[in-house]
Design a protein around this nucleic acid. Structure first.
Length: 480
DNA sequence: TCTGGGGTCCTAGGACCC
DNA sequence: TCTGGGGTCCTAGGACCC
């Protein structure tokens, strides 16, 4: 616990949805939901307009559609978000050498290590300047929490949302946290929250009253002791810049459960190959191969095998994964399969082919996800009907596309993945609003323009080509 | 139309070793 | 001859986070 609030936590506001709104003027101020569009998709991010309908992260997409039928539904474009994230992380890097990214849209910064702040006033000024710089550079808003510990900084940024800054003065944590729900403490999820509630513990103050021994009895040594300390505001975890990856994994949920043993085996082999491509792309090899199976009834099991030494050989991983599959009963059907590698070792040899294959696979996966955007037209728009048959077919079968990167460009061009950027020889830049039945509908607008008009073309119109995302801010460089 | 995908950390039992 | 006690590795599962 430091004496000054010099740990900063940044959290971008509704990041994926905000990036899409910034890139597509006609969606600003409107409900936007980014997530999986297949029959088993879930919400990754809902814009604040969509949240007003009750839509939130991790909600099944089907439920979101019931709550907000007129929202725009978009598939995530990770390479675009990654480019914006890079700009934000660069700004954080200018504040301190100690930056700890938690995800594309979240990071801790140790301002003291950067020499920019040593008291509340300087910390607040630095945080406000950061927010202004992020807006100027990316066109997006982020919320900032400042406190003397990581936990409190994170809670502060949560409190600051959206588009705000909250600073907790060191020394005030007990009175600040006391009346709040235990669920605000990071690491206390639904299960722990319920466990504590049954023991009569609902607030942070009640955690402190219960005492460490009681918490250890309820939650176990590690969890109990750390929760007790967190409730006291006692958190000395440092901001750590570099953390080594511990595992790499890929998984696919199928649109429909698969039963055929040969098909299941084929999918496992494909997953093993994708996993190895990622493993090699990150410069690693690994010793333990993990197979994950989620059955028709959502019961999930894993089987693993540890090799004598680390490998990055696709044949070795594939064979281990299929051996593990032999140990699993799949009668009744399988909804998800996954293959992972852990026990990672650095594998210094650069494997350019694997990196290339990975980049291609990334692009293919994105291109394959179709999006559906109802006409933001006046009420009564029946535009919320399903995606075109072609789009649906792609969304349901994207693992096939990802496994065949050499056909990705052709696939993307034929199906015009909705939400993606395009350029027309005459009408200029725009994005695909929907496609199907041989037609593609494009809205012609760009980040700096007014909301644009919609036109429809034939899917093989030679004047229409896919293009990279445009910078969100004049003079910026957000190209993915 | 119920429940993604990529991770991290922890627990607990058995094997094995000293 | 009647149960020690650690430490480490492996496996499986579960909670949690974004």
């Amino acid at each position: 616990m430091r004496a000054a609030p010099t740990i900063l936590h940044l959290d971008m506001d509704a990041f994926f949805a905000a990036a899409e709104q910034a890139s597509k003027p006609s969606l600003r101020g409107k409900p936007v939901v980014v997530g999986g569009l297949g029959p088993r998709g879930v919400v990754a991010t809902a814009s604040y307009e969509a949240r007003r309908f009750g839509v939130h992260s991790a909600m099944p997409m089907a439920q979101a559609r019931r709550l907000a039928p007129n929202a725009a539904y978009l598939v995530p474009r990770f390479s675009f978000y990654r480019a914006i994230s890079g700009q934000v992380m660069e700004l954080l890097g200018s504040l301190s050498p100690l930056v700890e990214p938690l995800s594309l849209d979240e990071a801790f910064v140790d301002l003291e290590a950067g020499g920019l702040a040593d008291d509340s006033a300087s910390a607040r000024a630095t945080g406000e300047r950061l927010r202004a710089d992020i807006l100027a550079t990316t066109g997006l808003t982020g919320s900032v929490g400042l406190a003397g510990t990581k936990m409190l900084a994170k809670i502060a940024s949560e409190e600051a949302k959206p588009d705000g800054l909250v600073l907790f003065e060191p020394g005030t944590e007990r009175e600040l946290l006391g009346p709040r729900s235990v669920r605000i403490i990071p690491g206390v999820g639904p299960a722990t929250g319920e466990h504590l509630r049954r023991a009569g513990i609902s607030t942070v103050a009640e955690v402190v009253e219960a005492g460490e021994d009681e918490l250890v009895r309820l939650l176990g040594r590690s969890h109990g002791a750390s929760l007790y300390r967190m409730a006291l505001g006692d958190d000395d975890r440092p901001v750590v810049a570099e953390r080594d990856a511990k595992s790499v994994s890929v998984e696919d949920t199928f649109a429909v459960d698969i039963h055929d043993r040969l098909r299941i085996r084929l999918e496992v082999e494909r997953l093993a190959e994708r996993c190895v491509a990622r493993l090699r792309g990150s410069g690693h090899s690994g010793r333990t191969i993990v197979l994950k199976v989620r059955r028709y009834d959502f019961s999930t099991l894993t089987r693993s095998e540890t090799l004598r030494g680390p490998t990055d050989d696709p044949v070795v991983v594939r064979e281990a994964a299929t051996r593990l599959l032999e140990l699993v009963d799949t009668t009744g059907g399988v909804r998800l399969l996954g293959v992972g590698v852990s026990g990672l070792a650095d594998y210094t040899q650069e494997d350019l082919f694997a990196q290339f294959a990975q980049a291609a696979a990334d692009q293919a996966a994105e291109a394959a996800g179709a999006a559906e955007v109802p006409e933001p037209a006046p009420s009564g728009a029946a535009g919320a009907a399903g995606p075109g048959p072609a789009a649906l077919a792609v969304a349901e079968d994207r693992s096939d596309v990802a496994a065949a990167p050499e056909t990705a460009a052709a696939t993307a061009a034929r199906w015009w993945a909705a939400g993606h950027d395009v350029r027309h020889v005459v009408h200029g830049p725009g994005w695909v609003q929907g496609s199907g039945l041989g037609r593609v509908t494009v809205r012609f607008e760009e980040p700096g323009s007014a909301p644009g008009r919609v036109r429809t073309f034939s899917v093989d119109d030679p004047e229409l080509t896919p293009s990279d995302p445009l910078p969100l801010v004049e003079g910026g460089a957000t190209g993915a």
